[in-house]
Amino acid sequence: MNTSTPSQEFWSAVKDISPLALGVAIYGLAFGLLAAQAAMSELQIGVMGTIVFAGASQILAVERLVAGAGAMTAVVAAIAINLRMLLVTASIRDVYKDRPWWQLIIGAHMTTDENWALMLSARAKGRSVGYWYLVGGGACLFVTWVVSTVCGVMFANAIPDPKALGMDFAFTAAFIAIARSLWRGKPDLLPWLVSIGTVAIALLSGMLDSSWSLILGGCMGALIAGLLPHE
C-alpha cells in the first residue's frame, strides 16, 4: 500500500495537471479580452475568478452581457451551465467524508471538471489519491485562472484567439484521454452507450441545450448502472 502525505499528494497533482493548466491559461487570457469589451475592470475580473471559479459559466455570463442581454439572463444561463457541478461533487463523496467544515468549503470550491476528472483517472490507474490531490489540482488551476484572466484584461490587445491555435480542442482531447482511463470494461458498456445516446437524441433533436443534454446524459447512464443487477 503506497500512502503519501497530504503535501506529496498536493504537489503531484500540481505536476499532473500542468498540461491542462496551460490550456486554462490560454482561455483565461482570451476571457480577459472579452471582459475588457464588457468594460470590466481588473478588480472585477479578479474578484469574479476568485469567488466564482467556474470558467465556462464566467465566459457565458460575460458574453451575454457584451451581447446586451440583461443581468438576469446572463446569470440564469451561467447557473444552468454549472448545475452539473452538483453531480460532480456528489460523485466523489468519499473524498469529503469525515472532513472538517473548512476543508469541505475549500474542497467544494476547488472542484472543477478538470481536477475532478484527473483525480478519478489517477485512481483508475491504481494510485491511492484523494482530497489533497483534488485540492492540489484545483489550487493550481485557481491561481492560473485568476492570474491569466487579470492579465487578459491588462494586455487586452496582445491576446491570441484560442480557436485559431486549436486550443479549444485541448479540453475535448483531455476528456477523451480521461474517459479512456476510467473505462473498466464490459460493465461500463451499456451505461456509457445510454449516456451517449441520450446526449445525441436530446441535442440533435433540439429538445435540450448542451447544458441540460449533458446533465440528462450523465443521469440516464448512472440510472441504468444503478438498475442493472451487478455483482
Binding site: 452539473r84 453531480l87 460532480v88 456528489a90 460523485s91 466523489i92 463523496r93 471538471d113 475532478w116 476528472a117 478519478l120 479540453f171 475535448t172 476528456f175 477523451i176 480521461i178 474517459a179 476510467l182 473505462w183 473498466r184 461500463d188 451505461p191 456509457w192 445510454v194 449516456s195 451517449i196 441520450t198 446526449v199 445525441a200 441535442l203 440533435l204 448542451s210 443534454s213 449533458l214 446524459g217 450523465g218 443521469c219 440516464m220 447512464g221 448512472a222 440510472l223 441504468i224 448502472a225 444503478g226 442493472l228 451487478h230
Partner: peptide, 20 residues
Amino acid sequence: RALNALPGCLIVSLVSVLLL
C-alpha cells in the same frame, strides 16, 4: 452503484456534447 457509475457517464456525456 448509480453514484459509482456517474463520473464515467458524465465525462462520456461531456465528450459527446463537445463532439456533436
